[in-house]
C-alpha cells in the first residue's frame, strides 16, 4: 500500500469522480438543501465531517468485517456518527444547528457516504481513506455551494444570503443582493434544482471535453 497516489485521490474527489457531477449520488440532500449557497456550504461541511470519520472507521475495521454483514455494519456506523454529529451540534453549535438541523439527519441516507465506504475505505488504508473522505467531501461541498449559488442567484437575486449566521458576522461581506431583480421563483423550487443541475452537468462535460482536446493536442507533438 505504499504506492498510493494522494494527488490522484484528491483529483478524483474534487473533479474526476465528483460525488454529484460524476457519480450522480446524493441527489436527495442536494435537491433539498441547495436553495442558497449558505445552506449548501453548511450541509457540505457537515457531510464532509461524517464522510471523513466514516471512511477512517471503516478502514480501521476493514479486516475484521466479513462480507456478509458489512452493509449493516457500515450503516450502523454511519448512523451512529450522524447522530453524534447531530447531538453535538445541537448542544454546542446551536445557532448553526438552527440553520442546518433539518438536514443533518438526512446525511444518514446520503448514499455517497456508504458508497465511499464500500468502494474505497474497505480496500484502502486509514490515511488514504481519510484523504479520500476529505476530497470527496470537499468535492460534494463544492457542488452543493455551486448549485446553491446558481439557484439562489437566479431564483432570489441574492448570493450567500444569511452567510453571517453560519460563518459568523465577519463573513457578512459575502452577502450580495442584486438590485432590481426579483428572481425567478421556479429556480428555488425543486424543478429549478433539476434544471440547474442538468446545465451544470452539461457544463462539466464541455469542460472535460475541452480538457481532453487540449491534452490530445499537447500530447501529439511530444509523440511526434
Amino acid at each position: 500500500m505504499s504506492d498510493i497516489q494522494y494527488g490522484r485521490i484528491i483529483k478524483d474527489g474534487l473533479w474526476e469522480q465528483n460525488v454529484v457531477f460524476a457519480q450522480m449520488l446524493a441527489l436527495c440532500p442536494l435537491m433539498a438543501v441547495t436553495t442558497s449557497g449558505t445552506n449548501g456550504l453548511g450541509m457540505g461541511l457537515a457531510s464532509t465531517a461524517v464522510l471523513v470519520c466514516a471512511n477512517v472507521l471503516v478502514s480501521l475495521i476493514r479486516k475484521v468485517v466479513s462480507a456478509q454483514v458489512r452493509i449493516p455494519v457500515f450503516i450502523v456506523l454511519i448512523a451512529t456518527l450522524v447522530t453524534i454529529v447531530d447531538l453535538a451540534m445541537n448542544a454546542w453549535l446551536h445557532e448553526l444547528y438552527k440553520v442546518l438541523g433539518l438536514f443533518i439527519a438526512l446525511i444518514v441516507v446520503n448514499c455517497a457516504i456508504l458508497g465511499r465506504s464500500e468502494s474505497f475505505a474497505v480496500k484502502n488504508g486509514v490515511a488514504a481513506s481519510a484523504v479520500d473522505g476529505l476530497a470527496m467531501g470537499l468535492g460534494f461541498t463544492g457542488a452543493l455551494v455551486l448549485l446553491g449559488l446558481v439557484r439562489e442567484f437566479l431564483g432570489a437575486g441574492t448570493l450567500f444570503a444569511q452567510a453571517s449566521q453560519l460563518l459568523g458576522p465577519s463573513f457578512a461581506f459575502l452577502e450580495v443582493q442584486v438590485p432590481g431583480y426579483g428572481g425567478a421563483l421556479l429556480m428555488i423550487l425543486p424543478p429549478g434544482a433539476f434544471a440547474a443541475l442538468g446545465f451544470l452537468l452539461a457544463g462539466k462535460r464541455i469542460i472535460d471535453r475541452k480538457l481532453a482536446e487540449r491534452e490530445a493536442a499537447s500530447a501529439e507533438p511530444a509523440a511526434a
Binding site: V64, V65, S66, Q68, V69, P72, V73, V76, L77, A79, T80, T83, I84, L87, A88, N90, A91, W92
Partner: peptide, 28 residues
C-alpha cells in the same frame, strides 16, 4: 462470526450514542 460481529458493532454504537446523548442532554 456474523452475529458476534454485528452484535459487537451494535453494542459499541449504542454505547457511544448513550454516552454522547448523556453528555449533550443538559446542553441541548
Amino acid at each position: 462470526y456474523q452475529p458476534l460481529l454485528l452484535g459487537i458493532v451494535a453494542l459499541l454504537a449504542s454505547g457511544a450514542l448513550a454516552v454522547v446523548s448523556d453528555a449533550t442532554a443538559p446542553a441541548i
